[in-house]
Nucleic acid binder design. Structure first.
Lengths: 336, 336
DNA sequence: TTGTATGCGTTATCAG
DNA sequence: CTGATAACGCATACAA
């Protein structure tokens, strides 16, 4: 037998409404009765039933976080989510979304339809899936996206400045004397992937370095992707003097590749990435990279969602956080 | 105005009970009425209200996962959790637990008291916190622990065989001719830390290699911990020929340290870890380590909890999964 | 095979 | 300031 608000009311000698008032810190309760209620709660070890509250308020007090696959980038997102979760008044629901799995789609549709969450934080590349887009559009559920592909006026989102970051990095390499700078892209349906490519190109143009199509390699934002792409690059007749990978995962793969082939980094080859994940710092010789402030992004996105849920007017629904060059030891003067 | 079971009943021309039967796949509904109900549901785009169902069934259909801090080990746990979440009938609630934060304690206590979760998966080292232990004991909530410190008959848990793994690894080093094998411990309140130390010692004893107290260094299961400990070891007058770190994070830190000081790995120094996190494979020259089958552990723990919740008799409430040596390139013959 | 009535534990309404 | 009573949307004895 669980103790309910009724028991408390009985014990305190008042109505359940008064108990409810005390629980929810509502005004118009005399200090005296409040004290009595508090004591009764204490005595009975009472805790309100969450499901009942959810039912009547028509809210779930839960926000969902939608993640695709499980990579280092996703881990970084979850890490930060965990860190801030304890200060939120909302529960956090972990939801994976694999577009290919039908079961995954059904679960997500239920989650939204049954209103098990009040809002959603959506991480890339979930947002590019057509089924999801339509589902979200028709359900009209509060949401904030993290680095989405689409930046229409309607979507609330938080991104990093990928264009600027890639520009800075390419500039850094150019300043070190590099002219043959390879770029490893990510998937073409990632906003990050595209913007970073443009930033790279813009920097080359700015410094009048001719673009060489062979130096841009379609790859993945993964270790394996970078590993393979670097192998291809390094076996070519005219290898680059620097490899700029679109993500740290890929850069780490490229680094491993280079070391396996006996290239000295950075003496014979410069390698750099993007995101500044913990691994970038912890891998010898220390990966030069661009900080994609994922911690701040997650935090801003979460609190933005909370603001939207509280129906307060939201200041900025579109935030782009600046990037910063993180120079470590994997890049150096060009070698001839 | 949301559509409820009542609307569906009206539309289908039957009672709400019948609708309820169809929704829950109960028998004793004629195929004909079932079809009518299904059509009504479709037409009205009806989805049952989860909170109402929770209230009346007195279940939350949610399992919580308790995590302390956010490291690579935790990330691996969450990764796996995500992967299997889509096939579960339960939602997954992410809950951080920092013993030091009072706010964190309050949140957790609420979570349990208000029955917002039906059960809990508890990850190390949350289980060693006195407040948590008492909270769990008094609340009597279904739970499964991952590699807990305490293995009493009452606790359901899933662990790796840390003792055996450490024994195998030490044996591997001994077989390579190493006699001065350093061991970097983790926190003393981690079961993994203790068992691994014992395994290391047992192997030394088995092969009649004298124990040298100076070769065992109290450290942390972190990159920084391994980095610092290795520095100390390598600067000593009689440095070891091999460093066995109690975790991959620490091993990676030690590896970085060695490379920074110009030691060749594995030619001049062997380094190995424990856990076989993705980083172990992706860091040059490839870290020799012991597989702590975290994916299986998480999966087993989750399904064990589900079994407990379903009130089916649980076969094994105590599972210890075997370890396996993963030999890569960071260990080699002793150098003289 | 189907339906009726009741309760789950809150919050909200509105009169005192 | 306080309280009786009605929702909230579903499941579930029990009756038909």
């Amino acid at each position: 037998m669980t103790t309910t608000i009724k028991d408390v009311a009985l014990q305190a000698g008042c109505s359940i409404k008064t108990v409810s008032r005390v629980i929810n810190n509502e005004p118009f309760v005399s200090a005296q009765t409040r004290e009595k209620v508090l004591q009764a709660i204490e005595a009975l070890d009472y805790a309100p039933n969450f499901s009942a509250r959810r039912l009547v308020t028509r809210k779930s007090f839960t926000i969902g976080i939608l993640l695709h696959e499980a990579g280092f980038y996703q881990s970084a997102i979850l890490s930060r989510m965990m860190d801030i979760s304890y200060q939120l008044d909302y529960d956090i629901l972990l939801q994976s979304y694999f577009p290919s799995h039908n079961r995954s789609r059904v679960k997500l549709a239920q989650l939204i339809h049954e209103r098990r969450v009040d809002g959603l934080v959506i991480t890339p590349p979930c947002d590019v899936d057509p089924f999801l887009r339509q589902l979200l559009a028709s359900a009209d559920i509060p949401q904030v996206q993290i680095t989405p592909l689409n930046r229409s006026r309607q979507t609330a989102f938080v991104s990093g400045d990928d264009y600027q970051g890639a520009f800075l990095m390419t500039e850094h390499l150019i300043n070190l004397g590099h002219k043959r700078i390879a770029y490893l892209t990510g998937p073409r349906n990632h906003r990050m992937s595209i913007d970073r490519l443009y930033g790279y190109r813009a920097a080359l143009d700015t410094y009048a370095i001719p673009q060489d199509r062979n130096l841009v390699l379609d790859s993945e934002f993964t270790f394996a992707g970078g590993y393979t792409a670097a192998k291809i690059m390094l076996f070519s007749d005219t290898p680059p003097s620097a490899i700029f990978a679109g993500s740290d995962d890929a850069a780490l793969g490229a680094l491993f590749s280079a070391q396996e082939l006996g290239w000295k980094v950075p003496e014979q080859l410069s390698i750099c990435g993007f995101n500044d994940l913990p691994q970038a710092q912890q891998t010898w010789p220390g990966l030069t990279t661009v900080s994609h402030p994922i911690s701040d992004i997650v935090e801003k996105a979460t609190f933005m969602l909370l603001e939207i849920l509280s129906v307060r007017p939201v200041k900025d629904k579109q935030i782009i956080l600046p990037s910063k060059l993180i120079i470590r030891k994997s890049t150096g003067r060009v070698f001839d």
